[in-house]
Nucleic acid binder design. Structure first.
Lengths: 155, 155
DNA sequence: AAGTAACCTACTAAATTAGTATGTTATTTA
DNA sequence: TAAATAACATACTAATTTAGTAGGTTACTT
């Protein structure tokens, strides 16, 4: 099953977008600084997020990315699905041909697990994450650090 | 997060053990044939399963492996934990130092997810799998094939 | 004594992921 | 209109992990 740095990066970046939603488009350079993710890698991830209609983009100076929908209409599952192919624990990608064309001994187990994980992550919207206290605290800390690093006074 | 062929192989092999439990120790060669898993790879997996007290072994001719406990006292989560290091979706292995020594934006999310998966897989015992109808059906099919391949008459 | 099957270790191959490098194109601002 | 910005695109490399192989040794049964 694929649930790795890529999915984590994508969710983190999308959450960063959601947290800074009011201030217009957010550039990947900003996210890259705040979340310490390689800019070029972010670009690759956002290409997929855009293809999946999770973000919209504005080119040119002052441009960047916005959420394509309101943050309560975007689930963590969608984000991970967009950058990985899927969250699927079966070896046959759900096809059921894992053992000589038939299902293997444990097919249903992994199928159930996949469904379970998907249901869990589908139930978590970006909006619900934004309102979690620890997320707020971490975001505050990060913007402090970003200010310090940029040499700008804190507003 | 690690949830891959290794964990699937381990659970499949343990389930094979559970299904053939009455007939004394089961050799890895048998499991290798039935489940189409490389013998040498199985040996590596069973080294870990043994270290984690999930199976016991009998050496020499007629030897093999048995479940170390009754099948209703062994959960899928334990098996996966034994062969992978853990089912942990955080990038910091739960340590909480994922972003400059502090937790990252999404630490709690992955922590929750890990707990969710673990709870789900902890609730599934080998015994409960043995009694699932589809498992029985697949097992029957497999032993038919094994008999056919071995050139032995079906008893 | 011979055969079996666990046990052990080191190595190789394949696949995947993470990250880099180098552009081009659209848009804004001076 | 030129310069700067930031998205968009593609190809490549490095690192890591997983899967699988190979070669043995040891314990036990027949």
């Amino acid at each position: 099953m694929r649930l790795t740095t890529r999915g984590r990066y994508a969710v983190t970046a999308m959450l960063d977008l959601a947290l800074n939603n009011e201030s217009g488009p957010i550039s990947l350079a900003d996210i890259s600084h705040r979340q310490e993710i390689s800019l070029s890698y972010l670009e690759q991830l956002f290409a997929k997020l855009r293809q999946n209609n999770l973000v919209s983009s504005v080119r040119g100076p002052g441009g960047g990315y916005c959420l394509a929908r309101s943050s309560d209409a975007i689930s963590v599952a969608e984000i991970i699905d967009a950058v990985n192919e899927s969250i699927d624990a079966t070896s046959c990608s759900g096809k059921g041909n894992c053992h000589n064309g038939d299902i293997c001994l444990t097919h249903h187990l992994w199928d159930d697990l996949s469904r379970q994980i998907h249901r869990f992550l589908s139930g978590i919207s970006l909006d619900s994450l934004v309102h979690q206290q620890d997320v707020q605290v971490v975001m505050l800390r990060q913007s402090d650090q970003a200010d310090a690093n940029s040499g700008c006074a804190k507003v």
